[in-house]
Design a protein around this nucleic acid. Sequence first.
DNA 1: TATTCATAATTTAATAATGTATATTGTTGT
DNA 2: ACAACAATATACATTATTAAATTATGAATA
Lengths: 111, 111
Amino acid sequence: MNNVAANSSLLPDAESLRANASDASQMLKALSHPDRLMLLCQMADGSERSVSELEILADLHQPSLSQQIGVLRREGLIEGRRDGKHMFYRVADPRALAILHTLYEQFCGAS
Amino acid sequence: MNNVAANSSLLPDAESLRANASDASQMLKALSHPDRLMLLCQMADGSERSVSELEILADLHQPSLSQQIGVLRREGLIEGRRDGKHMFYRVADPRALAILHTLYEQFCGAS
DNA sequence: TATTCATAATTTAATAATGTATATTGTTGT
DNA sequence: ACAACAATATACATTATTAAATTATGAATA
């Protein structure tokens, strides 16, 4: 009999909870940056954005923007596709998308 | 005519978006810490928890726990009530509660 | 006086922000 | 093919900020 079967409750046990909290906090950390959040908001509807488009919005020097994009990419929150000279990014993690939607509801006015 | 009225779209303009992103990222920053997230999870159903109860779960030295609780309190995410020798905390920000619910759905299995 | 919790202060370590330079990839004109 | 340019990524150094962990102490209550 393993621990999962031994846990009769629907709630995760302390060990699982800790692992989940670790995963979640790692993603939240990537989200908890004004510039990165702005960038993600532009893709929160599932659409793609080019780096050029994002650059206009973000008001960052190009290397800084690229660095923040790199953080999101390494965390698996976004994925890129090249088209000619341009890179297009989209949100690649459904969990991130769900969080972004909640954030939009809570911080950008009623749904 | 103000800027709000001038914006015919339902989407927030860049300025508002930036302000909202700043607010949201500040809250996310408070959430994006495994220990703090664990603590909040214990109160995610709206219930109160005493510091003693939280201490058992968190596996932290008492001053560290108190420090993390202090972060959550200063950010307005939780509020406390004294009952005799004990302090009871609960999640005091509905936005935080909404995020916690989404996190639970996404990271603690289907709900 | 013992318990429960918070705060202060310190040290150490980690992270982030910024700027400059350069590399890579692809496009275009010759 | 080659030169020049545009878009993006990376590397690196610097500086500043923030976090983690300890130890010690303070305040409230019983």
